[in-house]
Write a protein that binds this DNA or RNA. Structure first.
Length: 486
RNA sequence: GCGAAAGUAGCUCAGCUGGUAGAGCAUCACGUUGCCAACGUGAGGGUCGAGGGUUCGAAUCCCUUCUUUCGCUCCA
């Protein structure tokens, strides 16, 4: 990587300057990987969420919404598999400074080393390497984690990096769930987790939501909310953080219909990103290989965007089968089945999930919208945000600060404010005010000038083309609405 | 967490081998101008990420710590 300025650098500094995103707790030196959304950022983020909610939930007869709490019964996470599966056992080689996931490392070893490991851990020696034996080695090592490094060295575990026996550290568990305590006393009886995904809030409410809404299969439940993961490595600005916000929709259907709905939703969701004006050449759907699939999923597509740090996932659309509802039935002893009247039978619905990151969507629209243009030898920074989500929809200016122009402009902006996100600016030259709004992504500019006083008309400026047309004051709202819906 | 690099004004940065901080842009005020980052004058803003040490004296040298970036790993 060259040391040239990346889009991410530009966006980070633009965000700070213009009030999109600030580093959290900055005056205390910042808290790792947490970000605060400023005046413009909160509008953009909220607009993205509202647009998702409208597209996925309210515009559809067969999707309803809900909002579950972040803290849930700890058994939820046992049932979902997160307590058992949502951590990574890691070891480092002090020699090569490489870090490995222990299960991946063991998988890569020769059978003789595996046998030696089993011998030292008093496990039955296997004939060949399979997932089962890898898992039981990891489990056994975990029980003696204080000696695990020693055991790895003594059994001759090789570092693939240099093909020598590694100088291994003891294994460490990185639990990806944030743990905290409910109630005044810190004891193990009151452990709760900050949810690592919003989906489980939907699954545990499946019956509540279905019966009260009287929905029949197939139907979906959407939710937007915060989730928390104690990621080992965060970074790329707001792309990967420990606290983030999800927009998730769980679509319940018959088990033999999941592939049909998976195809439907992956296309719908891809189109959603395209409808925000995002460059379709930088968007793609990528099917997961069988080795990438999560423990609950049998098929999965990622919607990816090509950032300048590479293709990265914005949203996962997954066939989760009946895994989640079955697990919750098993652990809660409650019936979460659906009565299918057509066949007169109780069935466990299967689930197709569309799970998007709000912060990632926001980073995507910013990265995709940011443009630098050359105008009369000057550079112009423009955020070509869709007018559907731009933080400010319209800015109103008096051409001059005299002849009553400010008063007229102020009256116009007051009148627009209830329907459109509006901004009034009389500071500096008119050109400077246009450029300020270009950089904030404001799609429309209205200027009150000499003619306004004579004939009640103003100019309406388009951010991207910089072209202006003259319209009368009472046409402004109609013109804005029309442009926003096109 | 490990390895590498970095942290000086709101932003981007300069500050040579130690002598208590500067520029451009941005912000605010006044004047002038009036349709695409104009100009003039002036102002505000930094205990140089934090803590400790060496020194007569530290932004500069040493240690610790926090944060950021890039890799390893993981995911929305």
């Amino acid at each position: 990587m060259k040391k040239e300025t990346s889009i991410l650098d530009v966006l980070t500094s633009l965000s700070k300057q213009r009030g999109f995103v600030f580093q959290s707790s900055e005056i205390y030196g910042g808290l790792g990987s947490t970000w605060d959304y400023g005046p413009l950022g909160v509008e953009l983020k909220r607009n993205i969420k509202n647009y998702w909610w409208k597209s996925v939930v309210t515009a559809r007869e067969n999707v309803i919404g809900m909002d579950a709490s972040i803290l849930m019964h700890p058994k939820v996470w046992e049932a979902s598999g997160h307590v058992d599966n949502f951590h990574d056992p890691l070891v480092d080689n002090k020699e090569t400074k490489k870090r490995y996931r222990l299960d991946h490392l063991i998988e890569s070893q020769d059978i003789t080393i595996i046998k030696e490991l089993c011998n030292m851990l008093k496990l039955k020696a296997p004939e060949k390497i399979n997932e089962e034996i890898v898992q039981s080695i990891v489990t056994s090592l975990n029980k003696v984690s204080q000696q695990s490094g020693e055991i790895l060295i003594d059994s001759g575990v090789i570092d693939p990096e240099d093909n020598n026996v590694g100088d291994w550290t003891n294994m460490r568990q990185f639990n990806l769930m944030f743990k905290t305590f409910a109630g005044p006393v810190e004891d193990s009886g009151s452990v709760v987790y900050l949810r690592p995904e919003t989906a489980q809030g939907i699954f545990v409410n499946f019956i509540n939501a279905q019966t009260t809404s009287r929905k029949k299969l197939p139907f979906g439940i959407g939710q937007i909310g915060k989730a928390f993961r104690n990621e080992i490595t965060t970074g790329n600005f707001i792309f990967r953080t420990r606290e983030f916000e999800q927009m998730e929709m769980e679509f319940f259907c018959k088990e033999d219909e999941t592939s049909k709905w998976l195809d439907y939703w992956k296309q719908e969701r891809l189109n959603w990103f395209k409808s925000l004006g995002i460059n379709s050449e930088k968007l793609r759907l990528r099917a997961h290989g069988s080795d990438e699939l999560a423990h609950y999923s049998s098929a999965c597509y990622d919607i990816e965007y090509r950032f300048d740090f590479g293709w990265s996932e914005l949203e996962g659309i997954a066939d989760r089968g009946t895994y989640d509802l079955s697990k919750h039935m098993e652990h809660s002893n409650k019936k979460l089945t659906y009565f299918d009247q057509s066949n007169n039978e109780h069935i466990t619905p299967a689930v197709v999930e569309a799970s998007a990151g709000v912060d990632r969507a926001m980073l995507t629209v910013l990265a995709d919208a940011f443009t630098t243009e050359e105008i009369n030898g000057e550079t112009r920074n423009v955020l070509k945000l869709s007018s559907k989500i731009a933080p400010v929809t319209v800015a109103v200016f008096p051409l001059m600060n005299k002849q009553g122009m400010p008063e007229i402009a102020q009256k116009i902006v007051d009148d627009l404010r209830s329907e459109f996100s509006s901004f009034y600016d009389a500071g500096g030259s008119i050109g400077k005010r246009y450029r300020r709004q270009d950089e904030a992504g404001t799609p429309f500019g209205i200027t009150v000038d000499h003619d306004t006083i004579e004939d009640q008309t103003v100019t309406l400026r388009d951010r991207d083309t910089m072209e202006q047309k003259r319209i009368s004051i009472n046409q402004i709202k109609a013109a804005l609405s029309e442009s926003m819906n096109s």
